[in-house]
Amino acid sequence: MEIFKTLVKASLKSQAGYKFNFILDIFSSGIIFFSDFLIIAVILTNFKSLGGWTLHEVAILISIIDSGWAIYRTFGEGLERMQELLQTGRFDTLLIRPISTLKHLMIHAVQFRRLGILVQAIIVGSWGIINSGVFSLPFIILYIFLVILAGILILEINIVLAAVAFWTLKNDDLLVLTVYATKTAASYPLNIFNPFLKNILTFVIPLGTITYFPISFVLGKTDNITALLAPFLSVVLMIPVCSILWKTGLKKYTGTGS
């Protein structure tokens, strides 16, 4: 934790050094995501609802995914760089430190400008929450939990992808396919997709469990309590998957080199 504090302090100092640039960066990364939201908003104002969900309700889903994404992109820079580290052999320098390689990747860099995405997502989320009539203290607590869990789940999915790179040495295409695509898909209500896609978003790349299921329960669209527990289940079940894959990949790396 001490290491992390040192990193956050140092990164903030170096990134906020150019104040105007820093603010502009935060602002622009927020705007990019907001424009994505606007497109959906425009479509939905014409169609009134999407799979029985109003624009306000969909806004909640989007805000959870985007916040989680913002958290991951702020702290997960090392995982994002995995392909580069392996190809240049710089991954070796992680192994000469007395901490685990995953921990080392987490302290690779902190990108504060990604927090613009978080600000944007919270604004969209607040708008959705207030207008869909679910505003209450318990809901806000659940919402905060879901945002944090979304950050962790996206992190876990990226650990799996980074581990795959131990074998393939390349994971950028896979990253686009599995993370970017599913991230967008999981910001819509899953019932609009065919069962195959819905199952993928529930069981394979379980981003849907963090948005669609718990919010369905809160909005009274389902009374199955499992829906509310889904986010916790998927985050916990991903832990051994990440751990085993990472350890096996690392073993392969130290066994054969790059």
């Binding site: 001490e2 290491i3 504090k5 040192t6 140092a10 990164s11 100092k13 170096s14 430190r97 860099a109």
Partner: peptide
Amino acid sequence: DLPVVDTFELLISI
């Protein structure tokens, strides 16, 4: 992306 002195500080924590 960090100044040299920050690498040193980080390593001290590590």
